[in-house]
Design a protein around this nucleic acid. Sequence first.
DNA 1: CCGGATGTTCACCT
DNA 2: GAGGTGAACATCCG
Length: 260
Amino acid sequence: MPELLEVERYRILAEGALGRRVADVATPDPWYLKGAAAGPALGQELVGARFSAARRIGKVLLLDTEAGPVVGIRFGMTGTLLLDGEDAVGPLLHVPTRTDPAWDRWSVTFDDGGRLVVRDPRRLGGVFLDLDLTGLGPDAAAVGLSGLAAALAGSGTPLKARLLDQSRLAGVGNLIADELLWRAGFSPCRPAGSLTSGEVRRLHRHLRATLAELTARGGSHTGDLQEERRPGGRCPRDGHGLLRATVGGRTTWWCPAHQR
DNA sequence: CCGGATGTTCACCT
DNA sequence: GAGGTGAACATCCG
């Protein structure tokens, strides 16, 4: 599920956990604990601590503690966050029901009895202690024009593959990438480094506008292109039949008439 | 039954 | 080094 927009929603939910004292940490699925500090006891040192900030970089949620470690959470495609029983996804998203507590991979219980839970049926995500973020590119929601230009420059890689590369630009997933390129009018197959400075400016403008609009609508799956991402799908702008191919390792839909 | 799905990492190619 | 591919994860949906 989560791309940048959903993880931002999770982050806002997690702000409700700030300042509350951690009474216990549960690791029902030790396999889900990742990174150098992984182990069945990952997070036990959090007991007694309070989360001081909920941050987000790309698709990673970071929970700071005052003096202790930073908890980094990746949600994969199917992970979600619950606080005191409330699912961060909410009722807006048309996703499979993820209500089975058997999919709880990691949780924190506060001394007020409330809980913060990471639930992930497919186990595609992970919980990290002091996650190394050095390989992550600038956040797509905050990146400036020059940052976007740098992420694309000098590469013959397809534009979409570059946008999905989290080490170049963090936060854009498959659905947002297709929606963005459709709105901005660029072929996903266009070599990333072939964009002129004017075209990068256009892409940057559409990146900001697309993220803002999809946020207002409720998530990554609310784009104009979404319903047409299927066999027989047509461009909502000009009615041309959409093309489908694998680009950057992901299923890609685009309009050959106006995306160049 | 089969294929595909919002993600990431890694091994293994070219 | 740069890219590409496929596997792994486990469940749901058409």
